[in-house]
Amino acid sequence: MTLLIGSLTIALILSLLAFGILISFRVVAFEDLTVDGSMTLGGAMAAAMIVRGTHPVVATMCGSLSAAVAGAVTATLHTKFGINRLLSGILVMTGLYSVNLRVMGKSNLPLLSQRTVMDYADALSKNVFHGQSIVHLAGWEASARDLSSLLLMLCVTTTIGGLLFVFFRTNLGLAVQAIGDNSRMIRSLGVNVELMTTLALFVGNGVIGLSGALLAQYQGFADVQMGIGMMVWGIASVILGETLVGTKKIGFLISGAVMGSILFRLLVAIALRWGLNPNDLKLITSAFVFGALVVPRFISRGSRLVRRKQNA
């Protein structure tokens, strides 16, 4: 039970990452490789500020903001200096590795006795569960602290998801959506595509940084390696979510990203339970994304072949 709750909580934190990936890779169709760096930057910045005594909420927001700026830098390298998108992301991601070390001062920064946003989960627990430390949930026993962490993350994810949904229903948000769909058309309708792409990467990486900041506080440390492989993880969640909802409507895609993130996390948890070596996890994730990208193509080609045979 504890394992399940822990998995769900992390899945919710990582669904913020999936939101960010959704915005850059899908909505504005920008293959943004900043992700691994900006996720770490979010965590590193928040942890470093918390250690220095900053209020955890302020620290979390600064973590998010710094990651957002990193995203805007990537976009600017592409739009203003004409550097290829992938290379722009790689340059920023690589540079961020040093920045993150500078921010933290060392490669791993523990948050032991500091006040973090997880303390709000404890406060929540006092209100919801009236100070009980064990909660009975449909016949299962669960720690109130774990449950309230889950509840807190559920609130955060729902709020951010809701805000993004509202944003994409505004005139500005609609214009941002059109960039990935038909940039030529939206340019001819008077939208500064370069500026809007920068805005999208700013927002996307901001959400990713928020994910990093929350993850660091949940697991109790920030690590310079914590972002590695996160981009592929996010892509896997987004693809899984798309398959689950089966439409391209933005509201569905946003909720799909949450579902995809949860499902993927659970799949991984089960695989680990069955004895999968954690070291193999990233290879499996990559293979999964490869499969998810290729299999649909095979299916449609297969059905075309079948149809052709029937016609012949």
């Binding site: 944003f167 505004t170 005139n171 948000g173 609609l174 214009a175 939206i186």
Partner: peptide, 15 residues
Amino acid sequence: ALASRRGQSRGLTWA
């Protein structure tokens, strides 16, 4: 809706 704001500012107002 996108076309109805051609050349105008696009803010955070409901589309």
